[in-house]
Each structure stands twice: as structure tokens, then as C-alpha cells.
Nucleic acid binder design. Structure first.
Length: 482
RNA sequence: GACCUCAUCGUCUAGCCAGGUCAGGACACAGGCCUUUCAAGCCUGUAACACGGGUUCAAAUCCCGUUGAGGUCGCCA
């Protein structure tokens, strides 16, 4: 049985790099009918953030990544918070000390800092000088004046197998006597991860390549405990547009910021899956089920990938276009509320659906409708500048007045009827359709672009159309020179 | 600095492991078609094997080196 885990630390909001790691774990588990486990690595009390756990859970759920065992739902390998597993770590740490494979150390942070600076001055690798290694201090994991350190072999070489990269080796002389238990009694990541992965029966570890260098150290701990390490898969990183590590500078980094910006979880999952993994054929739009079905180790890349938001936007647009109109409306409603376009429980779903249908193929993100479709909900507060120059010339006024009058007397406010009015105007004034259509569009929407004019007007309704055309004529008379 | 990882269009990538294809697809970009505008859709185009050696009849593909990029070197994860 395949068992994989996503093991975030609640020290910050999850960004797309973390989430993609979670996704690959998830896809691999589901592809193999295995279990996906969520474990919270909350052993750093200094950097702990109250809101982080909630953000992690929210982000994963939003994307559609569900776990089989985890902090909120439990499971037979719990607890799934490392902070609740302290006795376990102490037990194994003591065992290692008893067997002479680890030792207590009372070096102060100040001394460590000094040693580090001295080594730096000599241009040596920064490592603990093993001052306590042979002192045989008697202590206890809970004693705040001591830590427990691991006795690294002093010579030789240690290797582990990375599923993607093959054998990776480190010279033991370069490996530090890492801390297993901190002075506050909490384990370090390096220790807890080994204990938990083993005890939780993890079969495969998918994590970022920034963990490659610690994997060598983990191997020693596995060996010391007589355990077999899980299979290791170190994923290539996700980089920003400038090829540097992803950070705040690159815009939205927290996964929920993408949700707020109007990206769809299905599109986000699809896009993230393709960052560092390839289905190896020409298909790019893949549903969650298809991703699970097709996910495989040999499609995984070892090369860092640049996060390209333009492709995400394209893909999101694809998903918006594939969506049922009613579903699109449902997705848009929270934004309409947020912007005050609809209030309370009473709104015209029929109207919203027609707006959705008209705007669907023009949206890349849900929030695009704020710029592109506001006029369905609000009076335009001004007119597009270029549009004014081209379409709001004074000689258009008679044409607009003609259309206005016809509209006022129309017996049936239907697209076909509206179109007929324009045709009549073309004939009467001997001009092309655009000469009438463009000024009317600008008058009712304030924009020079959008859905077909007759569709737009029919949705908007007679009352608003008439009022807006009148207002525009007035505006031209007052603002445009002869 | 030491150690580790990586290297195909601007970007995501297929091809590499089992050498022989005009190096394929997608985003973006440019042009065209459609069209009342904008989108969408369709068609076309520009664009890459980091460099240098070697092995071989033949190298994007195998080997070595160089360069470049990234990562790690915490009582962070």
C-alpha cells in the first residue's frame, strides 16, 4: 500500500510551491490507490503562526486535495501534529544516546555562534566543532540546558537513492553533528521527519529539492535506528519570472490569493500539475480524474520551472469557457456581493445568467468582469477616451437621436428588433452599421469593446438603454466642440 | 567558500534511459480569416538542443570538462 504525506510547517501561508508538492503527493497516492496523509510539522514554536494551519487546510480543500488521515480527521497513525508526539521523539533520542549514537550537548548558542564565525574567518565549512561529542554529559531530553546531537560518522561516504536523480552521495566528513532534540525539548525537523515517516508507514517522500542535502543526514538516522528509508523523490523547484526563488515580489504567492483573484481551482490544479510534470502527449487540459489516472514518476522533471502566470490565465479562461453558465453565475455572485453589485438575498438569477453567457468567453479570471462588465450593474461613470474621440463626434447626435426615438417606440425589446432599428438608420443616413453601433455601445457601456451590441442591449433592457443614450447625447452636447 | 542539483524556443515541455524524425506540442508574440467592437474560434509564421572536447558511420540523446543557474550549509522547515 502506497502511503505518502504532505508535511507543511504552520509558519507561513502556503504558496504554490508547497501546494504543488502536496498535489504531486496526492496524485501519486490516488494513482496507486494509496493513502495521502496530512501531517503538521509544528515543532518551531518561535515562528508558529496561528492562521497558518487554517490557511493550509483551506488551500488544499479549495484545490480539491483531500487527505485520508490528518490533524482534523485523525487516523490510526496519529497524532498528526508533531507537537503532540514529543514523547515519541524523546524515546528514540534516548535510545540513540544509550547506544552511543547520539549525545547530550550543553554548548550555548553564543559559543556556537563564535565557533561558526571563527570557521568562516578561516574559510572553512561551517560545522559544529563537536566539542561535546566525547564529554559524555548526563542529561535528559527535557533539560533546557542541553540538546541532543547525532554522532555523524567521521569518514567514509553516504549515499541515498533519489527516484528521479539516481544515487546522490555525500562525504561523511562534511556532515555536521546535527541537533535531534532542541533545548526546549522539541525535536528538529531532521529528527522528527525520520521518526514520523517511519512510524506512519510512509512509502514515498515527495518534497522540494531544497531537502536533498538533508536527505543524506536523514539516511544516517535511518541507519542508526535500523530502519529502511522510504523512496525519495526530490522535486524541482518553482521559480519566479526572474528565475529566483518564489517570493512576495512575484505577486500572489499564497494559494488563496489566486482564489481571490478569480482563478478556478480546477484550472489551478491542472496548471500546477503541468509545472514539473508532463503527461507526455499533446493534451494540456486535464481534469482531476485524468491527472490521477495519468500521473507517473517518469513524467516528472528535475529542472526548475518558472511560474508563468500568463499561461495560467489562458488555462483559467479555458475552464471558464467550459463551465455551465449557471455555474459561472454562482462563481461570480460572491464578487458581485463584494463589489456591492447585488445586495441581500434578492437578485434576478435570470439576468445574472444572461450576463454570464454574454461575458463568458471574454473572461480570463472571474474578477475580469469588474472591468469588462460593470455596466450591467452600474451606470458608466465616464466614457473611454479613445472611443470619445472616434465615436462621440457631434455629427453623430442626429443618428443617436433617431435610434433613441425608435427604441422608445419599439413594441418588443428583442435583439432582432433592435438590429432592425440600426438597419433603418443605416438606410436613412446612408452610413455603415458601425457608425451607429459604436456610439451606442460607448453610450450604454462607456467602453468600446464587449459582447455583440444587440445582445448587450437586450440584456440591459429598454429603460437603462434609453436613459444612457439620452445622457450620452447630453454629454456630447456639453463636452464636444463643433 | 564547501557540498549537492540542474541545463531543448521568451515561458511550460516532448524527444534522452534503449544514438539515425524537417527537434513535436502549449502559452506568449506577429500576420491572416471570421466580424458592428472586444473576445472566442480557425489558419499561418518567428523562435531552442549553453559552450568545448571525446566515443561513434551517425550525438539533443552516451562520457569528460567549462560556463551558467538553483539549492543547502540554523536549537527553521
Amino acid at each position: 500500500m502506497v502511503r505518502v504525506r504532505f508535511a507543511p510547517s504552520p509558519t507561513g501561508l502556503p504558496h504554490i510551491g508547497n501546494i504543488r508538492t502536496a498535489l504531486f503527493n496526492y496524485l501519486f497516492a490516488k494513482h496507486n490507490n494509496g493513502k495521502f496523509i496530512l501531517r503538521i510539522e509544528d515543532t518551531d514554536r518561535e515562528r508558529y503562526r496561528e492562521d497558518a494551519l487554517d490557511a493550509i487546510i483551506k488551500g488544499l480543500k479549495w484545490l480539491g486535495i483531500n487527505w485520508d488521515e490528518g490533524p482534523d480527521i485523525g487516523g490510526e497513525y496519529g497524532p498528526y501534529f508533531q507537537s503532540r508526539r514529543i514523547e515519541i521523539y524523546h524515546k528514540y533520542a534516548k535510545k540513540l544516546v544509550d547506544e552511543g549514537k547520539a549525545y547530550y550537548c550543553d554548548c550555548s548558542p553564543e559559543r556556537l555562534k563564535r565557533v561558526r564565525e571563527e570557521m568562516r574567518a578561516k574559510k572553512l565549512n561551517f560545522m559544529y566543532d563537536r566539542h561535546c561529542r566525547k564529554r559524555n554529559i548526563k542529561s535528559d531530553p527535557t533539560d533546557p540546558s542541553t540538546v541532543i546531537r547525532f554522532k555523524m560518522p567521521l569518514s567514509g561516504e553516504t549515499c541515498f537513492d533519489d527516484v528521479l536523480r539516481g544515487k546522490i552521495c555525500f562525504d561523511n566528513s562534511t556532515q555536521d553533528d546535527i541537533i535531534l532534540i532542541k533545548s526546549d525539548g522539541f525535536p528538529t525537523y531532521n529528527f522528527a521527519v525520520v521518526i514520523d515517516d517511519h512510524l506512519m508507514g510512509i512509502t514515498h517522500i515527495f518534497r522540494g529539492e531544497e531537502f536533498i542535502s538533508s536527505a543524506g543526514k536523514h539516511k544516517h538516522i535511518y541507519d542508526a535506528l535500523g530502519w529502511e528509508p522510504p523512496k525519495m523523490v526530490h522535486l524541482a523547484m518553482i521559480l519566479g519570472k526572474d528565475r529566483s526563488k518564489l517570493s512576495k515580489r512575484h505577486g500572489a504567492t499564497s494559494i488563496m490569493e489566486f482564489a481571490e483573484q478569480g482563478f478556478l481551482p480546477e484550472a489551478m490544479m491542472n496548471f500546477l500539475a503541468l509545472l514539473g510534470w508532463s503527461p507526455k502527449d499533446d493534451r494540456e487540459i486535464l481534469s482531476k480524474d485524468e491527472l490521477v489516472e495519468r500521473f507517473s514518476l517518469d513524467g516528472l522533471s528535475t529542472k526548475p520551472a518558472v511560474f508563468d502566470i500568463e499561461k495560467l490565465e489562458w488555462m483559467n479562461g479555458e475552464y471558464i469557457r467550459m463551465m455551465e453558465v449557471e455555474k459561472l453565475t454562482e462563481n461570480l455572485i460572491p464578487y458581485y456581493r463584494k463589489w456591492g453589485w447585488i445586495n441581500g438575498e434578492k437578485y434576478d438569477v435570470e439576468y445574472l445568467n444572461r450576463v454570464s453567457a454574454a461575458m463568458q468567453e471574454r473572461l480570463k479570471k472571474l474578477t475580469d468582469i469588474k472591468e469588462l462588465g460593470f455596466y450591467f450593474f452600474q451606470e458608466p461613470s465616464g466614457y473611454d477616451e479613445k472611443g470619445v474621440r472616434k465615436q462621440f463626434k457631434r455629427d453623430r447626435i442626429p443618428w443617436m437621436k433617431f435610434v433613441l426615438e425608435k427604441f422608445e417606440n419599439l413594441d418588443n425589446w428583442r435583439e432582432e428588433k433592435l438590429e432592425k432599428v440600426i438597419a433603418e438608420g443605416m438606410e436613412k443616413f446612408g452610413v455603415g452599421a458601425g457608425k451607429l453601433i459604436h456610439p451606442i455601445r460607448l453610450a450604454v457601456s462607456g467602453l468600446t469593446r464587449g459582447p455583440g451590441l444587440f445582445e448587450l442591449l437586450e440584456i440591459l433592457g429598454r429603460e437603462k438603454t434609453i436613459a444612457r443614450i439620452k445622457r450620452a447625447i447630453n454629454w456630447i452636447e456639453n463636452n464636444v466642440e463643433e
